[in-house]
């Protein structure tokens, strides 16, 4: 078990040590595992110097942050609606939303691109965010979680004269905090790691997200792996922090859903 885990972990370790080496070091024969200087941060300086990498990080943080928040808002509203109300089309609508899980994003990407382009949103934050604002997983997760909130609480609040939005805010949301945490963290990680859509809508360097920024270190004939790995470390660190802080909720999310395919 431990041996397997170490094998799985090794590429990360290898990435980290490479990011601390100079070019002659990574080309040295025979190969040395440890870098000559463990405090050599030149590659990281070079990464931020050659590309506006700080801007990439900011773009990714902004986009992932907004997508996480918007997703939580819309999903919990819809989850409440589906879990605790009956209305015409209730079953059909929910079935349709879950059915969207079957639609691969790649099957809708061309028309979506044309729409974004027609609306003048290419190369804008809104354009990058467009397909990531809400996820089916979120609606599904929130519905499952809100379903088990006792309806008595809601009825009691209604008898006290609370309006529906107020009930949602004061009764429902506080009872599903773990699910909200799961959704925020999982959605943030997904959007942060996204490549396909940003690749299509982003043109200018200043709008690039981290995944695109990483690729800009491989676009040359000779790939400088000391820089690639340093950039990879920079791109992974924020998500690693999110993952370690929210590990419990991430795992919960995976288990609850099987996630989006």
């Amino acid at each position: 078990m431990a041996a397997g885990a170490l094998c799985v972990f090794f590429p990360f370790f290898w990435m980290a040590v490479t990011s601390l080496k100079t070019v002659p070091e990574i080309q040295r024969v025979p190969l040395h595992i440890a870098p000559d200087r463990w405090t050599n941060l030149d590659n990281f300086r070079e990464v931020f110097h050659r590309q506006p990498f700080a801007r990439f990080l900011l773009n990714s943080a902004l986009i992932a942050g907004v997508s996480a928040v918007s997703s939580v808002v819309v999903s919990s509203l819809a989850g409440y609606g589906f879990a605790k109300f009956r209305f015409p089309g209730h079953g059909v609508f929910f079935f349709a939303i879950v059915g969207i899980l079957m639609v691969p994003f790649q099957s809708v990407v061309v028309p979506l691109y044309l729409w974004v382009s027609r609306l003048g949103l290419l190369d804008t934050y809104l354009g990058i965010l467009a397909p990531d604002l809400v996820s089916v997983f979120g609606v599904f997760l929130m519905r499952q979680s809100i379903e088990v909130v006792p309806s008595d609480y809601i009825d009691a609040a209604r008898i006290d004269g609370a309006g529906e939005l107020r009930i949602f805010w004061r009764v429902i949301l506080p009872s599903v905090k773990p699910a909200l945490a799961t959704l925020v963290i999982v959605k943030f990680m997904w959007t942060w790691n996204e490549l396909f859509w940003p690749l299509i809508v982003v043109n200018s360097p200043s709008m690039k997200v981290v995944t695109l920024g990483l690729l800009s270190f491989t676009n040359m004939y000779f790939i400088e792996y000391n820089l690639v790995t340093a950039a990879a470390v920079v791109s992974i660190l924020p998500i690693l922090v999110v993952f370690l802080v929210g590990q419990k909720w991430v795992v919960r999310g995976v288990v609850l859903s099987g996630l989006k395919g």
């Binding site: 990435m15 790691n193 792996y225 790995t229 791109s235 992974i236 998500i239 690693l240 993952f243 991430v250």
Partner: peptide
């Protein structure tokens, strides 16, 4: 939990 791009580049180096 890391992006596929990062994963792919780490392995390309391996």
């Amino acid at each position: 939990s890391v992006s596929l791009v990062a994963a792919a580049l780490i392995w390309q180096w391996m």
